[in-house]
Amino acid sequence: MKMLLTGFDLLLALTLLWLAWQLLRSTDIFKAIIFFICFGLLMSLAWVRMHAPDVALAEAAIGTGLTGPLFLAALRRIERKAGKNMMSEPAGNGEETGSRWKARNREMSPLLWTVTALTCCLAGLLIWTVLIIPRPLPGLADQVAGSLAESGVNNPVTAVLLNFRGYDTLLEVMVLLLGAITVWSITHAPFPPRVPDTSPVQKAAVRLLLPLICLIGGYLVWQGAYQTGGAFQGGAVLSAALVLLLISDFLWLPGMRSLPLRLGLTLGPLVFVLLAGFGILVEKTLLRLPVEYAGPLLLFLEAACGLSIGLTLAAFFAGGRPASDLRETPYSGEAKGKGPAES
């Protein structure tokens, strides 16, 4: 049995390396993205092997389930534009069009060799360091186990994430919101994309799937207190539902107002900040939770964060702010309501 597992580990490690190599050197970006998705799925397997089911779930849902479609959507947007251009643009004027990223690295091969040699050295040094670090490696497992009873949850990962290192998680939720604000600041969402082939079957399937997905997301959030799951995994599942809605061209989506969306995006961080302030008021310490109420408070926090995370991830996929966002311009007088006005 042990032999078998070791063999499995070896196979998994080699496959991971092979996939990574393939995805970085294949000439076709589309293929590379597909390799990346496979890579992510195998990574989840590796997490399971290392007894990290929470990470496995997050990797499958966020790392692959969402990042893969993000890449595919971006590729489609870039190539669609580039393709149109290459058809109308005469050849030889390539640096401004879609091919601006391609070619151009043939002549820098001495530099390439230097970089290759340097990275090989780096790999060697790092691996050598790992091999000589004395074992067993120290860690914080005992401290976590010792304080788990006071944290209000049974899952040690959730306890670390939301209670012991809750400040980290608050900043991390802020990073997510920051990402959403950034995406909104860069461009308008290219929706509605006028997909002509949203078939009635697809729409019906989405209608059926949607409640189910939401249910699973909610269950994952709720379950986070006891076993594998939590706000991030649940939020990612929720975002899958929203992504399905986006690509199925539901009519009410393009007209989505900005304010409710912003409220949803900031709900999780706001609840987190309120909880932090509550800690100062009641326990005189930031983010400190009264032991007897810690469980319910954390569940409430997880629900709010899960909702916001789901919305944020969906906003990443949409790739921009809603169309209505520039219309409520408070300043400029006559030019209001002309929609996307910049460049």
């Binding site: 929470d54 993000l70 990402g179 860069i186």
Partner: peptide, 22 residues
């Protein structure tokens, strides 16, 4: 298992998705 690295990885995954999206 040590839960602290796992929590760190969860944080890291979310941050890296965010940077990827941007």
């Amino acid at each position: 298992i040590d839960a602290v690295p796992q929590a760190m990885v969860l944080t890291g995954i979310v941050v890296s998705v965010c940077i990827t999206a941007v």
